[in-house]
Simulated assay, not measured.
Amino acid sequence: MSERVMIAPVQKQVQVRAPIDHAFAVFTSGLNRWWPHTHGVGGKPISKVLIEPRLGGRWLEIAEDGTQTVVATITLWEPPQRFVMLWQIDAQWKPDAAMRSEVDVRFFAEDAETTRVELVHHKFETMGEAAGASMRRDVDGGWPGLLQRFVAEAERRSSSS
């Protein structure tokens, strides 16, 4: 009997100078404003990136030709505190509905104008040991820059509202 190797989760945290409702909305409904359109998995130039804001909703890439690619599926939706999604991307950064790593994003109001966002990307072992280790390395290096783009967008929009 073989034992499943556990792969350590990727854990990231950022502070946002914005109220919790605003931070959650920018992360989810405002995804197209901060997610780089060069970070696509569908293989075609991206026109739009969006999250359908509901349980069972999808993270979609919409290509310039209208093709939709599912990146993730929402498995828990608790605005403005938390959402969880199955990340349906393989280690070669291709869409794969069988993939089951998980991204858990939590929002904590530090005060009325500051939100702490904690992201945990885990369950890489569901991909297999080698593929999971490869994906973990990639997302560990990728999430910090992506989260900084989110913070910049949330703070820019918050100060102008």
Rank of each mutant, 00 (worst) to 15 (best):
V26D: 01
A133D: 10
M99P: 01
S29M: 11
V5N: 14
T115R: 03
G42N: 10
E110A: 15
I89D: 07
A8Y: 03
K12W: 08
A130C: 06
A8P: 09
E64Y: 11
M1Q: 09
E118H: 10
L147A: 04
R149D: 14
A131T: 09
A97E: 14
D104I: 05
T28L: 04
V49C: 15
V151F: 04
I89Q: 01
V10K: 01
E102R: 11
V14A: 06
D104W: 03
A109G: 04
S158C: 10
R106D: 05
Q11E: 15
A8I: 12
W35R: 06
E110Q: 12
P79Q: 07
S160E: 15
R17F: 07
W34D: 06
W34M: 08
G42P: 05
V70A: 04
F150I: 08
F24I: 05
H121Y: 07
S101D: 12
S159V: 15
M1R: 09
E3I: 11
T114Y: 07
E64S: 12
E64F: 01
P80A: 00
F107N: 01
R82W: 01
G43N: 11
D21I: 00
E52H: 08
V14G: 02
A98Q: 13
K123E: 07
P95T: 04
H122L: 11
L86V: 13
Q148W: 08
P144M: 00
W35F: 14
L147N: 11
R157P: 01
Q11S: 13
K44R: 13
D21V: 00
V16L: 03
P36V: 11
D21G: 09
V14S: 04
Q92F: 15
P45F: 03
A131F: 05
H121T: 02
V49Y: 03
M127S: 04
K44M: 12
I74R: 05
L86E: 10
R82Y: 02
D104F: 00
S47L: 07
T67H: 15
A8S: 12
Q13T: 13
V49R: 09
L31N: 03
N32G: 02
R4C: 13
I7K: 01
D90V: 02
A154N: 03
A130F: 00
F83N: 00
V71F: 14
K94D: 08
W34P: 09
W87Q: 07
T69D: 05
G40F: 11
Q11K: 14
R116W: 11
S2W: 10
T126C: 08
P9G: 08
P95M: 02
W34I: 02
G142Q: 02
V117D: 02
L146F: 15
H122S: 12
E129F: 06
P53D: 15
V84Q: 09
T114S: 13
R17W: 12
L119T: 06
S2M: 11
R54Y: 10
P144T: 02
Q15S: 11
